[in-house]
Design a protein around this nucleic acid. Structure first.
Lengths: 348, 348
DNA sequence: GCGGACGGTGAGAGCGCTCCCAACTCGACA
DNA sequence: TGTCGAGTTGGGAGCGCTCTCACCGTCCGC
């Protein structure tokens, strides 16, 4: 347990370097407009005293924090089990690093956490927030809105159709519906007729949109061929069992994501059904560690998850810069929908 | 992109409630020693204005932040692929929530990140830090020490034998060496004679300690039976291949963790070797999602990872409270080594 | 040789909050 | 009736920093 020492202040550095506080501040923040010899002297004093600016004091006046919160409304167990988040974070992380901003990860699980995260955001610890994995009746957006923290959402929020009081909602998503359509059309093209869909968690728009895409193609699908699930491998297993139970004649499955497809394929194998001969399987996400490891390799809808993360961060940062400068340069950032592509491997 | 509104200050609330700033502050911080009627009036004013305290201003004077940083010195891809971290975070999270502190997760990957994280910690954003997954020549501890942030380490740091200038290092770890010994003894008891060890990343003390435990039992082990790896499934596969190549007569493997064991078993299966008949396998961690899913279920050394996380948080918080109050109450926290237990399943 | 422009520097206000201390109000008690 | 303390409340300093603005010397042009 390292012990704290009283930390030197600007004042101390100023005294040591024989200049004013203002000059030290200038040097610490870039050193523009300060004579070279003084810059050097101040730098040395900073070094000798081990001076580090007090962020609280700085933020108090600048109202900037050089930190961005990433809020994921899922319990740790799921966040860490799903490579999806890792990939988004990777993208975000890269972008923020380039902007010299710190990434602060906040996980929320349950009401109490929501309130705490709300307070954290409202308390002014960060300049903005990237919010993922919203659920339908999530109180989080409301809290964030009240907190007045600029936010970009990952995935289309449920209210995205309308406009909130505070202005347009900015989000980044992939073309869930279009991607789903393409996947199902592919199954149709393969001559499959009993095409099922294992949905994602339907309290999230991505799951709803993919389901809509499925229905776009299978206009009058047998309702028994649609099984609700939750984006997890375990959920995929349960759903597949139920599906086989209801419709033993199913010959294709479009799973809401790769993890679900993985679980489904596990059950198919256990039941002695061959993929793709007996049942063709398509996933969604193209999560490489999953999709390439399945037996057989998974046909899936690719979305560039890392790029989504990067884009979210970029939109947020651009929005922040915009308001910091002359408010209006370059136009307000708006939502982005990224395209998807069907990746054909062996499972369908 | 939600827009910011100018946020009300204490002053504004005070004016609205017709009291002084000091009184509002008292109410906001618990309301002790304020007449009930005033408390009510202030509460209402707070509500009406949507007042939220400015943390920067508060921290500036209290020097507290009610936030703890968790620093993991691994790239996102690994952090999110390894359930180990998820379980620790779960424990930490529970403990911090109970203490009403916010968990701030910082991942560092590479030099640049280290510097940024160092600055973040030194900048006084958090009250303390929990640091994981240190590597041998990590500059992080040095930076943290300079930052003067109270820290508890997860896993024994390499310098733990000595004492640093700033006082004793506090860490939480499990009995890696003892656990390893027990595992290997079990293999010996099973009558195995060609017992191999696939190590973890040897720039981490946990891997070194487990290797030492292996050697404690296999005093004059054939050096070819020790293969270096890196705690990942892929690494386990590669190591197992190399091992089979070097010593086709191997009849038992003690893997440095469950993920490695998983990779090794995959290779054994591919090579047509039966577990445990031909080769017995033992892992380390008892990571349930992995250990129970393998074919056959994995015999392994259990450590209570979640408890480790909880304990780390508790030690840190206790240390912080101690210094906040009369400095010395209850004695300085010291490191804790948790016991391990061998969990016998089918693989050995 | 003088006024003005200009780069460099310091003084000081103030960000929003906490907390010490003085002041003020009562009721109790002598 | 005067005094005292307990219980409340407000005033004001100050946390460490940034940023405006006034000031000071220099150097240029006329």
């Amino acid at each position: 347990m390292t012990e704290t020492a009283p930390r030197p202040t600007l004042e101390a550095v100023a005294a040591r370097a024989g200049v004013s506080r203002a000059t030290v501040s200038r040097v610490v923040n870039g050193g523009d407009g300060v004579r070279e010899s003084l810059v050097e002297r101040v730098r040395q004093a900073v070094e000798e005293l081990g001076y580090v600016p007090n962020q609280a004091a700085r933020s108090l006046v600048t109202r900037r924090h050089d930190a961005i919160a990433v809020v994921i409304a899922e319990p740790e167990t799921r966040v860490f089990a799903d490579p999806f988040f890792a990939m988004q974070l990777r993208g975000i992380s890269k972008e923020l690093t380039a902007h010299d901003s710190q990434l602060v990860l906040l996980l929320t699980e349950g009401r109490a956490d929501h309130a705490r995260v709300g307070r954290y955001l409202a308390g002014g610890h960060v300049d903005g927030a990237l919010v993922f994995s919203l659920h339908l009746d999530d109180p989080l957006p409301g809290l964030i809105q009240r907190a007045g923290v600029p936010t970009v959402f990952g995935g289309r929020p449920s209210w995205s159709e309308g406009t909130r009081a505070t202005g347009p909602t900015v989000y980044v998503d992939c073309d869930n519906r279009g991607g789903a359509r393409e996947a199902v059309r592919h199954l149709v093209a393969l001559g499959r007729t009993r095409i099922a869909h294992i949905t994602g968690a339907l309290d999230q728009t991505s799951a709803v949109d993919r389901l809509d895409g499925f229905r776009d193609v299978m206009v009058d699908a047998d309702p028994r061929l649609i099984v609700e699930s939750d984006f997890t491998p375990g959920g995929g297993e349960r759903a597949m069992r139920e599906l086989l139970d209801r419709c033993p004649d199913v010959d294709a499955v479009f799973a809401a994501n790769d993890l679900t497809a993985y679980g489904a394929m596990k059950v198919l194998r256990e039941e002695g059904l061959r993929v793709p001969e007996d049942v063709a399987v398509i996933g969604f996400d193209d999560m490489l560690p999953v999709a390439e490891q399945t037996e057989p390799p998974l046909t899936t809808v690719r979305q560039d998850i890392e790029e989504m993360g990067r884009l979210m961060a970029r939109l947020l940062l651009r929005g922040l810069d915009r308001r910091a400068t002359s408010e209006g340069v370059g136009g307000a950032p708006s939502s982005v929908i990224l395209p998807t592509t069907l990746v054909r491997r062996a499972s369908a």
